[in-house]
Design a protein around this nucleic acid. Structure first.
Length: 369
DNA sequence: ATGGTCGGTGGCCGA
């Protein structure tokens, strides 16, 4: 048992070592349930308690219930302590096109305070590097790496964990004057943050630029990254993947942001083994991450899902949720995009802790047990 | 309905 558990009732922990119904536990702790309940919620919140729920007598399988500050335990829930061997940390990763970091600072800081993501990828920071508000973000507990320019574009990665390595832009220097790409290795995960060109309209040179950019982006992935390790491609793709992700699919046929040549890029990264985490949990239509200011899109529930988190198989396997925080779009002075937030239960194996590792002399050795 | 509203800039552009 680790130290954080020492204040828990030992009898309670004993009962929880095998799965047990809350109602049965309540029976065993008659009269002392208030204390037990607060300990159960503590354990649950800190990721040390499994909660599974049978939905009545239906054939629906036993569902794992994740802690939120609104979820309650039910008498019929199955409880069991998380064994040390399977203990995994929760990792929250977000992406958000903030449409100017300087004008969005109050909203950004309150959102970070509320959700405490471990890592967030920002696009359209619209600020030169020497004016980037890294000190204020530092006070909120975030290390930052950023690549910006005046007026347009600009990307940044904020992290509550050490940033191990950074890549600015494309390796082949493609489009280096536009700051649309930054990547950082954090907790052993390659976090690639991209702001794909919008494209304007299919007959515009800006659309050709978008298609070329996507081609270069896929080349960059293929040549310089490995999808067999933990890897995440987040950002404003400016592409709605399928008909569920736009308000009027018929009208969007062959239009920018919903064009076969753009979908080709998604097919490429899919084939390269990346997956859209949002669709792991939600198959419904009408979930958008962007709404046009001009047409009052948000007020009319007309938008597109163009902000994405796609991940390699090892991260997909431990992905627990993905939500679009549309509540944020209803705040005063919102961005035209809402943040996308995803949770992973990811156990980082820092160098030196893995069984087979390279030591400081670069010699491979067996760490043993 | 071919507009509308943002953000940043500098005497309009990009989304």
């Amino acid at each position: 048992m680790n130290e954080s558990q020492t204040h828990y009732d030992s009898e309670l922990l004993q009962f929880l070592s095998d799965r047990i119904r809350l109602s049965e536990l309540r029976h065993k702790f008659k009269g002392n349930m208030a204390l037990v309940a607060s300990q159960l919620y503590d354990l649950w919140r800190s990721g040390q308690l499994h909660v599974h729920r049978d939905w009545g007598n239906t054939s629906q399988k036993n569902e794992k219930i994740l802690y939120t500050n609104r979820t309650c335990l039910l008498p019929t829930d199955w409880l069991q302590i998380v064994k040390e061997s399977e203990h995994q940390q929760s990792l929250l990763i977000a992406t958000w096109n903030i449409n100017s970091i300087r004008s969005r600072m109050p909203l950004l800081l309150s959102w970070l305070e509320e959700h405490r993501p471990d890592i967030i990828c920002l696009q359209e920071t619209k600020v030169e590097d020497h004016l980037f508000p890294h000190q204020e973000l530092g006070l909120s507990g975030y290390q930052t790496v950023f690549s910006g320019q005046k007026t347009y574009n600009g990307v940044a990665i904020l992290s509550r964990h050490p940033i191990e390595e950074v890549k600015y832009g494309f390796s082949n220097r493609y489009d280096s004057e536009n700051k649309r790409l930054i990547a950082a290795k954090i907790l052993g995960i390659w976090i690639i943050n991209v702001y794909v060109p919008q494209g304007q309209s299919t007959d515009s040179p800006k659309f050709s630029y978008k298609i070329e950019f996507l081609k270069e982006l896929f080349q960059e992935l293929e040549q310089f990254y490995d999808s067999s390790v933990p890897l995440l491609l987040a950002g404003d793709y400016n592409i709605a993947p399928d008909s569920r992700d736009v308000s009027h699919p018929e009208a969007m046929e062959n239009q920018v942001s919903f064009h076969p040549r753009e979908h080709q890029f998604l097919d490429q990264i899919r084939k390269w083994k990346l997956e859209d985490v949002f669709r792991k949990f939600n198959q419904e239509k009408g979930h958008y991450s962007w709404w046009d200011f001009r047409t009052m899109g948000f007020e009319k529930d007309e938008g597109m899902r163009i902000d994405h988190i796609w991940v390699s198989p090892s991260l997909m396997g431990c992905c627990k949720s993905c939500v679009i925080d549309i509540e944020n779009r209803g705040q005063p002075k919102p961005s035209d995009h809402a943040p996308v937030l995803s949770e992973f239960s990811y156990q980082y194996q820092p160098a030196g802790n893995s069984r087979f590792d390279i030591n400081q002399n670069g010699v491979k050795h067996n760490g043993g047990d």
